[in-house]
Amino acid sequence: MEVRTIKVFTTVDNINLHTQVVDMSMTYGQQFGPTYLDGADVTKIKPHNSHEGKTFYVLPNDDTLRVEAFEYYHTTDPSFLGRYMSALNHTKKWKYPQVNGLTSIKWADNNCYLATALLTLQQIELKFNPPALQDAYYRARAGEAANFCALILAYCNKTVGELGDVRETMSYLFQHANLDSCKRVLNVVCKTCGQQQTTLKGVEAVMYMGTLSYEQFKKGVQIPCTCGKQATKYLVQQESPFVMMSAPPAQYELKHGTFTCASEYTGNYQCGHYKHITSKETLYCIDGALLTKSSEYKGPITDVFYKENSYTTTIK
């Protein structure tokens, strides 16, 4: 009895394709271990004539594949690729409408935090270190965002349907971005203890939790000093293409032309909904596939993004 075979390709990165001759009487799992086709788990399936010449994702289970996976995804987590594939199996079914010149995501599976993050990423200057993220990001900007969303979920250790947080998501993504040249110098002034300067680099240099107003941050924000008295913390120097200011959701007025974009969060910790506000020729609110415009805006804002380049204080 002759062994019926077909020729397929296996890959971990969709760049390096490895030619395989597979036995049609055995499952993919018996031949390769966990195997995925377009995100779908085909591990328990036997090869079919229609699979001839198709590319299958496999887990990096030998040295060659491990090197290829690390170079593309910059992670050695053995569960990463499987999590990416199972997320992709959902995100490829989502709709990605162009809204006001940006790629958004039609609401499904509690994905409003991903839509808000995706919209924000198209408006701030950011370059990702893992080629996987950078490639998928370019495709997302062009309207094909399924891979990018699935990668975000995998890097953030999230599953489809789980509630997510924009600030946490951005923080994970910033860790995989090139923020080497970003720098922030802060000064804390206390009447009792004097003053202390701190220099922050990388992710810490672009994120701040405690106030939404970048102007206020430049002037000074009140913080408790270690001595128990009130101290003032203010920005001395900022070198970065953008800054992200966050605070627990509270009524906040966004003035046209003073910011790049913002995240609105309605609801409580267990259950809520994100919308995205962007400042173009007027203010726009993007909620999944829905767009509304207004000249002014007041609502429960939790993150505001500002364009920056270089700032030095005039406070002496």
Rank of each mutant, 00 (worst) to 15 (best):
E71P: 01
K293H: 05
G143T: 03
A154G: 01
L121E: 06
H18C: 13
I152P: 00
M244Q: 04
R83Y: 00
D109S: 05
Q122F: 01
S240P: 03
T76C: 15
Y297G: 05
P97D: 04
T198L: 13
T64A: 13
G299I: 04
G267P: 10
L290G: 11
N268Q: 09
L59D: 15
S213I: 06
G194R: 08
M244W: 11
G202N: 04
P60N: 09
H51K: 01
P131F: 01
V67I: 07
C112I: 00
Y96H: 04
K298I: 15
Y208N: 09
R139W: 14
A205H: 03
V203G: 12
K44Q: 14
D13S: 01
Y172Q: 09
E144Q: 13
Y84F: 08
V243P: 06
L290P: 01
H90E: 11
Q251E: 15
E215H: 08
C112L: 02
K218C: 08
Y234A: 12
T282F: 12
R4Y: 14
I105M: 07
Q238W: 00
L212G: 08
N89F: 10
K293Q: 14
P34V: 13
V58R: 11
L291D: 06
A150I: 00
G288R: 05
K293P: 12
T226G: 08
N89V: 14
Y96T: 03
R139V: 15
T314I: 11
Y137E: 00
T91W: 04
K307C: 12
Q122P: 04
T282I: 03
I286T: 03
H51L: 01
V304T: 05
T43N: 07
Q30W: 07
K44A: 07
R139D: 14
Y57N: 14
R184W: 09
I45E: 15
M207F: 13
A154V: 01
V21H: 07
Y274N: 06
S240M: 01
E68Y: 06
L65G: 15
H48L: 15
A108T: 11
V12F: 15
S294E: 12
D77A: 06
D41L: 05
D77L: 01
K201E: 14
N187Y: 07
P47T: 02
R167G: 08
A231P: 03
V67T: 15
D38Y: 10
C271E: 15
F217M: 07
I277W: 15
T226L: 10
K127I: 07
T11Y: 01
T159H: 15
I223S: 15
V203F: 12
P249D: 06
P248S: 11
F80E: 03
G29P: 02
P241K: 08
H176Q: 06
A250S: 15
A205M: 03
K93D: 10
A205P: 04
I286Q: 14
F242M: 07
T5K: 15
N178T: 09
S50N: 10
T211L: 08
A262P: 08
T76L: 09
A115L: 07
I124E: 03
S240V: 03
N309V: 13
E2I: 08
S310R: 13
A142M: 06
K229H: 15
A69V: 14
Y36L: 02
F148L: 09
P47C: 02
L114A: 01
Y214D: 04
S263V: 15
K201S: 09
T55A: 11
L200V: 12
T258C: 15
A132H: 08
E162N: 07
L121N: 06
V188I: 15
E2A: 10
Y72K: 12
E2K: 08
Q98H: 06
K293L: 09
L121V: 14
F174A: 04
H176S: 03
L121H: 01
E52Y: 13
F174C: 08
S25L: 14
H48A: 15
F259K: 00
D63E: 11
K183F: 07
E253F: 04
N111Q: 00
G257V: 03
M245S: 04
T11V: 03
E168C: 02
A136S: 08
H74G: 14
T120V: 11
V3R: 13
P249Y: 02
G39K: 01
Y274V: 04
K218P: 04
C156K: 04
K219W: 07
T211H: 12
R83I: 02
K191N: 01
D77E: 05
T91E: 00
V99L: 15
S294L: 12
L121R: 06
G101C: 02
S104W: 15
N111R: 01
I124F: 05
I286P: 05
K93V: 03
R4C: 09
T43S: 15
D62S: 14
A231S: 09
R66S: 07
V304S: 05
P224F: 12
N49Q: 15
T260V: 15
I286W: 04
F32Y: 08
V22Q: 00
L173H: 02
F305E: 06
K95C: 15
C156H: 01
F80S: 01
A108L: 09
F70Y: 09
V166T: 05
R4F: 13
T27Q: 10
Y73L: 01
C193F: 03
C285A: 11
Y208E: 14
G194W: 03
